[in-house]
Computed example of a mutant assay.
Amino acid sequence: MAQQVPLAEDLFTWPAEEPALIGGRSSDGKVVFPYRSHKLVGGVNEELERVELPRRGTLWTFTGQRFRPPSPPYTGDDTPKTFEPFAVGYVELPGALRVEARLTEADPDKLHIGQEMELRIVPFGTDADGNQTLIYAFAPVGAEEGHGDGSE
């Protein structure tokens, strides 16, 4: 039976009522995303602490993706004819870092730098086993669940 699965391991907590991105924190307090188990810190290969990142942040910058990215590596279920433009941006997560992500709102007139954003998990494609793959995205705070995320 088909399931909903993250596009890649260790991107976000799933399944979860309030999913969070997974990062890694080193002894110097720096955070990396996506999570990886080790990082060089002061010339030493250090094991990172696995941490859940804040679910909300502010839109730092954004742009529109008006054409279907080349495949591979893009693995969406759309085709050049069915592709729908989307926005991509950097969201600054307080006390952590800036994360590059798809935005659920594609209309640039409805986005502005400094806008509060919240993590969402949205459908992306289908894997080789027929499971629905999921990716992380950020939505403007106050946007209704399920709207503007391409899953309608």
Results as ranks from 00 to 15, higher is better:
L48D: 04
T63A: 12
G150W: 02
W14S: 09
G130C: 01
G114L: 09
D10G: 05
P69D: 06
A139H: 01
E49R: 03
Q115W: 08
G150T: 00
P80F: 11
P140L: 12
K81R: 12
L97G: 15
N131A: 05
L21S: 00
P80W: 13
G125M: 04
L97F: 10
E47C: 13
A128C: 06
V99N: 00
V91L: 03
G142I: 02
E100N: 12
A106W: 06
G146F: 02
E116D: 11
T63C: 13
K110G: 13
D149E: 07
F67Y: 11
G89C: 02
V122L: 02
A8S: 12
E9R: 14
L53N: 00
R68G: 07
A20C: 15
M1D: 00
F138I: 09
A20D: 01
L119H: 01
P69A: 11
E152N: 15
Q115S: 05
S26E: 08
R98T: 03
G76H: 01
A143Y: 09
D78A: 09
H147K: 13
P85V: 08
R50N: 06
N45T: 03
T13M: 06
E118D: 11
V5Q: 07
E84G: 10
L53I: 02
A16D: 14
V32G: 15
P108C: 11
P94E: 15
R25G: 05
G130Y: 04
P69C: 10
L53W: 03
